[in-house]
Design a protein around this nucleic acid. Structure first.
Lengths: 138, 138
DNA sequence: CGGAATCCTAGCTGATACTG
DNA sequence: CAGTATCAGCTAGGATTCCG
């Protein structure tokens, strides 16, 4: 079988970096963030989770599976596979995962809250850039 | 000049996704995290910052510049370029950036704190995987 | 339905060399 | 020192396909 999914780990895994950085990468990865936040709400089935996340931005089955595996391996997500036909797998947060998710949610809430100011800052920055660009060059 | 650095934005920028996701990507990016945390401590000069981060994991000048620009554009980092020879540029957090950095630091602290448990979980997971693999296949 | 394996592309990322 | 430009590698991520 050899899963060998690494998720932001291909290069990182072999590196001489603090292990906690690795955890960060997993937790703050594009899909890790969304998965954690969704699961903070309640347990989800695979496709259900995919649809829930899809409301924000579509995620491929591959990336969702990969993300879930990484988070499960880190002990943040619990995978409950029921041996039924058709297959049914429920994902939920572990206690550890809940802690992580809270942190991530804090960050997400901050981002949502400050979005306006960031957007303003961007416009200001771009405007200043444009001025500097047209003034000096061309 | 056309800098056109996007940092996790090439694909994301044009997407139909919530803007706050964009901020998240910037803040939680590989180098964004480290920059914010370092700057939370005190202002840094470019190379100084590079060395400080390098203690953890080497960052190229390009990526550091790119990261700083992105964060500056988002209004999280303040760039103070002194018109002297040799050039001297100081980077510091804005109020907004400090808020972000606090959040990120919280996450980092959590990761550091729970590292042991995550590592345990990983070994357990890998061991279980190995058993399942050798039992069924081959 | 829940995944795994494969193939493919975009773009992040880094090393190097150059400018002010 | 503080970047920028260019080139090249590698990987994340997506689409597709097949299996249990």
């Amino acid at each position: 079988m050899a899963v060998s999914v690494e998720m932001t780990g291909g290069r990182a895994v072999g590196e001489a970096m603090c292990p906690h950085r690795l955890i960060m990468e997993h937790v703050t990865s594009r899909w890790g963030v969304l998965v954690l936040i969704e699961l903070l709400d309640r347990p989800y089935r695979f496709s259900e989770l995919r649809r829930a996340i899809g409301q924000v931005r579509q995620v491929s089955e591959k990336m969702l599976a990969q993300t879930l595996q990484t988070l499960e391996r880190d002990g943040l997500v619990h995978r409950d596979a029921k041996p039924v036909i058709p297959p049914r797998v429920d994902y939920s947060l572990t206690d550890l995962g809940r802690e992580a998710a809270e942190q991530v949610r804090g960050l997400a809430l901050w981002a949502t809250d400050r979005m306006g100011r960031v957007l303003e800052a961007r416009e200001e920055y771009d405007a200043a850039k444009a001025r500097a660009g047209t003034a000096g060059a061309l």
